[in-house]
């Protein structure tokens, strides 16, 4: 009980729960869309999804400042690649939140003059760029880990053993490819935080890709990806050791 209270007392914790509910509703509504008996339930799910989305928009007011502050911190990082990726990601996230705030103001009638569609696309564009930068960072971290593990003597023995265990497969599949995949899996296995962050960002990427029309996927895929990403977000928040640092 204490853990739940501690989790919900964090703004981020509540936001993740609402996001999970939002995408769970989207996914459930997609699966039930053709069931004529469940039309009332689908309407309720859609209403709940809209309500969660609107609530989250208000709840995220002021997050722009958090992102700018995060960008200021990441500028101090010694690793140039990390510094570039994280600072760019945080700046894009700040711009995404800013667009989101404008859209919220438009939805409650505070600002009438702005073009909703245009700013919605802008928000998705910044969100997409933020995710691309985060994924670039993940790839960079994974490559660093792979280089580090490849130098390890113990791992080399393990690799040789793995390749010798199934020579007929090693002949059929390109040995370099097999070695690369083995190295990649080993790196991710030993660093679950990186693996989770990568999966989360890949899942999140489908949302702006669909909105921007770059890679059209249905509401079910978007709902599923959003749900998985939100659940990973909850896990990383509940278990700080599974969170990527910096």
């Amino acid at each position: 009980m204490d853990a739940v209270i501690q989790f919900t007392s964090q703004s981020q914790g509540r936001d993740r729960i609402f996001r999970t509910t939002q995408y769970a509703c989207a996914l459930a509504a997609y699966f039930l869309r053709n069931t004529s008996k469940r039309k009332d339930l689908v309407a309720k799910l859609k209403s709940l999804e809209v309500n969660m989305s609107a609530g989250r928009k208000l709840f995220r007011l002021g997050n722009t400042v958090n992102s700018i502050e995060a960008a200021r911190r990441t500028m101090q990082l010694s690793d140039r690649a990390l510094c570039l990726c994280l600072t760019a990601a945080n700046i894009n996230r700040a711009l995404y939140f800013f667009c989101d705030n404008l859209l919220w103001a438009r939805s409650v009638g505070l600002i009438r003059t702005i073009d909703k569609e245009h700013w919605s696309l802008n928000a998705s564009r910044f969100y997409f760029l933020s995710l691309v930068m985060n994924l670039t960072r993940d790839v960079y971290v994974v490559s660093q880990l792979m280089l580090h593990i490849a130098r390890d003597k113990h791992f080399r023995q393990k690799m040789a053993q793995h390749l010798n265990e199934s020579p007929e497969i090693a002949e059929a599949v390109i040995p370099q490819m097999d070695a690369f995949l083995f190295l990649l899996l080993e790196s991710l296995k030993t660093h679950p935080a990186v693996a989770l962050d990568m999966v989360k960002n890949v899942c999140d990427l489908f949302i702006p890709l669909d909105r921007l029309g770059i890679h059209q996927s249905n509401a079910g895929v978007v709902g599923f990806c959003g749900l998985i990403s939100s659940l990973i977000g909850i896990v990383t928040l509940a278990q700080p050791k599974l969170r990527m640092k910096p």
Binding site: T8, S9, Q10, S11, R14, G62, N63, V65, E69
Partner: peptide, 15 residues
Amino acid sequence: MDSWVRFNAQSQAKE
């Protein structure tokens, strides 16, 4: 700025 970030991180504060 730091105090705002800390304040903003609490759901009770936002409420």
